[in-house]
Each structure stands twice: as structure tokens, then as C-alpha cells.
């Protein structure tokens, strides 16, 4: 059957990588969950209304807190942003256009986490996500201005949408802490 197949792993010593497959799988699974949750809320909530907009961002931030609390490794936020953007780009390449902004926002969050140097504390994780969310929104505002520069009415509308989203993100930080604690209590997150 497969008698000839060489057992490569047994012959050469694999090198130790920074990212273990299990960490990458968690990041991939959560990226799918975060992407899908936005879609689900938009459908279940009946499209674009302030509650749906806020809730979408609340859930995304809450899940991001859980992801980073689970993986707890520098670079998780950045990797999450990159792979979400790449997969989104396979359906909607416009996302690639947003990738540099998302990377800048994620890098800012990572730098904060590096400066605090406490990857294992929930407070540091929250701070980095809060900064990531804030910088992301600033970049979104800038892009909205570029897109709608001829019509300030449209820009104001986009700004309101972004602001409502940001309120959702802030509430998501709180929900994220509570949810992470609950998952620890249930024995699902062990850190």
C-alpha cells in the first residue's frame, strides 16, 4: 500500500517554530467565528440599524478578547488581522486595500502589549485591543473621507456608523472580560 513512503519526520529533526499548529488553528477558527458572527448579526438583526451595528462590533471585540486570552502570544492580534484580511480578500479584494490600515492598527496594539510586557494579564490584553479598535476606527474615518470627500453628508453618515461601531467595541471589551472569566470557570480556558 504505502510501503515506499518515506517517513520524513523520523529522518530529519524538525525545527522548532515560533507558531505551533494548535495556536494557528485556534487563530483560524476564531477568525472564521468573528467573520461569521458579523454576518449572522446583520442577518438576524434585520440589516443596518444602530443596535445591529453596535452588537456586531461588541461580539467581534468580545471574541477577540477570548482569542487573545486563549493564545497569549505576542503577534496573535497581528496574525489574526492579516489572515482575516487575506481570506476576506478571496471574496472581496477591496479588503486588501484596507489591509495596510488594519496592520498599522494591529501593530499599535502589539506595541502596547510589548511595552506593558505582561502578556498573561487580562488588563494588558484589553488595553492592546482597545488601542487596536481605536486606531482601526481612526483609519476607517480617514478612508471614508477619501471615498466621500465630495459629499460631506455622506462622510457624516459614515462617521456616525463608525462611532456607533466603536461604542460596540468598548462594550465588547467589558463583555470579553466577563466571558473569558466564565470560560475559565467552566474549565474551557485553562490559563
Amino acid at each position: 500500500m504505502t510501503d515506499k513512503s518515506p517517513l520524513v519526520i523520523g529522518i530529519s529533526q524538525p525545527r522548532k517554530r515560533y507558531w505551533q499548529p494548535r495556536e494557528l488553528v485556534v487563530i483560524g477558527v476564531f477568525s472564521a467565528l468573528i467573520k461569521l458572527s458579523s454576518l449572522l448579526i446583520a442577518i438576524a438583526g434585520g440589516g443596518m440599524n444602530p443596535v445591529t451595528l453596535g452588537l456586531k462590533n461588541l461580539v467581534a471585540t468580545m471574541l477577540l478578547v477570548v482569542l487573545i486570552a486563549k493564545v497569549r502570544k505576542p503577534g496573535t492580534l497581528l496574525l489574526f488581522v492579516v489572515i482575516s484580511s487575506i481570506v476576506s480578500a478571496l471574496l472581496n479584494s477591496v479588503q486588501l486595500f484596507l489591509l495596510p490600515g488594519a496592520i498599522i492598527a494591529a501593530l499599535t496594539g502589539e506595541v502596547v502589549l510589548y511595552l506593558v510586557r505582561k502578556h498573561h494579564e487580562l488588563a494588558s490584553i484589553l488595553m492592546s485591543i482597545a488601542i487596536f479598535d481605536f486606531v482601526s476606527r481612526l483609519i476607517s474615518l480617514t478612508l471614508s473621507y477619501l471615498m466621500f470627500r465630495e459629499s460631506m453628508g455622506l462622510f457624516v453618515m459614515a462617521a456616525i456608523i463608525i462611532a456607533i461601531g466603536y461604542i460596540g467595541c468598548v462594550l465588547g471589551l467589558g463583555s470579553g472580560i466577563l466571558f473569558t472569566k466564565e470560560l475559565k470557570h467552566a474549565g474551557i480556558i485553562r490559563h
Binding site: 507558531w19 488553528v25 487563530i27 483560524g28 472564521a32 496574525l79 481570506v87
Partner: peptide, 11 residues
């Protein structure tokens, strides 16, 4: 690898 694996898992 570190981008392909999570992206494939996401899809």
C-alpha cells in the same frame, strides 16, 4: 506556513 494554515482553517 503561519499564514496559510490559519487561513485554510478559517475557510
Amino acid at each position: 506556513y503561519f499564514i496559510y494554515l490559519p487561513a485554510a482553517v478559517m475557510i
